[in-house]
Nucleic acid binder design. Sequence first.
DNA 1: CTTGATTACTGAACCGCTTCATGGAAGCCT
DNA 2: AGGCTTCCATGAAGCGGTTCAGTAATCAAG
Lengths: 338, 338
Amino acid sequence: MKRPTIADIARRAGVSKGAVSYALNGQPGVSAETRARIQAIAQEIGWRPNLAARSLSGARVDAIGLVLCRPARFLGVEPFFMELISGIEGELAASSCALMLQVVPDHEAEIAIYRRWWGEGRVDGAILVDLHADDPRVPVVERLGMPAVVTGHPSGAGSLPAVWSDEVAVLREVIEYLAALGHRHIARVAGLPALLHTRIRDEAFSEICAELGVSEHPVAHTDYTGEQGARATRRLLSSRSRPSAIVYDNDIMAVAGLSVAQEMRLDVPAELSIVGWDDSPLSQVVRPALTAVTRDIPASGAHAARTLLQLIGSGEPGSLEGPPARLLPRGSTAPARP
Amino acid sequence: MKRPTIADIARRAGVSKGAVSYALNGQPGVSAETRARIQAIAQEIGWRPNLAARSLSGARVDAIGLVLCRPARFLGVEPFFMELISGIEGELAASSCALMLQVVPDHEAEIAIYRRWWGEGRVDGAILVDLHADDPRVPVVERLGMPAVVTGHPSGAGSLPAVWSDEVAVLREVIEYLAALGHRHIARVAGLPALLHTRIRDEAFSEICAELGVSEHPVAHTDYTGEQGARATRRLLSSRSRPSAIVYDNDIMAVAGLSVAQEMRLDVPAELSIVGWDDSPLSQVVRPALTAVTRDIPASGAHAARTLLQLIGSGEPGSLEGPPARLLPRGSTAPARP
DNA sequence: CTTGATTACTGAACCGCTTCATGGAAGCCT
DNA sequence: AGGCTTCCATGAAGCGGTTCAGTAATCAAG
């Protein structure tokens, strides 16, 4: 009734434990027949490698870590993370690697987790998300020597490989599109200002707007919740000169913004154009359906996972260019009124 | 530069490895002073238990498993899972226990994961979600002898402890409320028919409606996506006698239903009352804000985790009664038109 | 036929921790 | 004083793998 071990296999096959280990790990040192015989026995008695034993002798633990660092109540709403996770999973499953997940309130806790995971030998590496400006996690992880990939702009990733897609290019696409529709006052409801990608978008936004003759381009920062998205929208729409288009940093805020517009009896898209970001199914469920920046989040999760596995395996990160995002026009954008 | 081990501590403290082990695990066998001295040294040199070594000698691995079995694209939209996870995490963090997460396409794969996890000694137990009618996972997990708790109705959990809250009671609350508002034709847009809780709600719904004189009470089954929610709503609202109220099995479908009503120029709540389920922030972002069944999902996740930890620790599951759900009326429900 | 390389396999050490059998010292009782 | 626990602490075995040094056998080359 006890779990079979390689010693059991060795006994039945009449060979040594070492030979069994070689046979089952595809390493040279045993003949093809012996290998086949051993594999057959392993199969027959339902042997599985004991993870602990294996990792104790210095091998991989076949698990990677992901720490999400946002207050719990914000996490649920953002379809982003769940999609990212399912993408990561898809890739990991192929290598029968497991995912350790932890949700923490702040970076300090997150760093403690990395220390612990790596110290205890619980993971082979980790994926870092939500890169901040001057992110404290990066130097710690570098020092730990734990393999890690960062999802976000390479500028903040230090020596860690970063998988990313060119957000500035999409943002340009969005603004060019809106500018071409005649919008000259475009607002942006952005996410957490501490996040690196928020800063990058902020900067690009103002540059591109200036360049394209979009004279007014206010930015409001939020915590990504619908509530704050609604509040920011209300403020923007109540100001003396109100924007004719608003670009949101996620979908939930875009939906909230849409509701505020309706509440204020503004017609979308006739009087206000709305662009969402991330394009979760949410965008298509509301009326009008939201024009949005769409990016394949599961694919980018898969890409990050693949890169990490390569890094763990060979020490080389491989390709870092992620799947590109693009603008998907739907019903919430229209020409600006003269 | 190598990680310190108990042998290092033993050397510095001038005692044996065994003594160190006893000291650090709070077990009798060492004097108070020695214990303190050993702990101080451990602290000083930054010792952490090697997980693999510990679990190899039969101790706990301090990790529990959670397998989500829904197609990836449905997972993201449902804030439910992310909230559940963050609730579980909150509880686990206190016991510095980790969470292994896996997303699989079907029950067969899920069962394979449990076999693997338990076989490899990767987890101490698991939480089973999305109980199906005649769920094949239950007997497998029972046979494996892996500690597990089920979130869902005890009727389907076999000998496994089930943490649950009384859904029938809330459903009754909803229908009584709608009936009191004069609704006599209430539709229900339900989730996956294979899920046990869908069946339970289905049955309760028809019974309670009959009992309360709600003469018509059609049910449409969906896959929980906004798309199918919209389609079901469209069909219901296009039928000869259309319902004056619709109860949805999740929020995203309720929002989709709201959009369909708007699209069909039906006023919500004047002409159609809408009730959502789960009450994610989504419900409050749309106009009108959705009346919804609200339940503290993180709390129920925490409860499940707590129960599992107790089960692992003592073999006894402890309390099984979860936090109750209740109806939270907002703007999407109103008296039926005469 | 010797030499050297290669192949197939063994035996033992080792990874870091837990735990059990053992033993010495101290304290209590009669 | 001798015999009894009780308390602290030790040493070694063992968990289930990996891996390295070593060995015997086979084979090609010189």
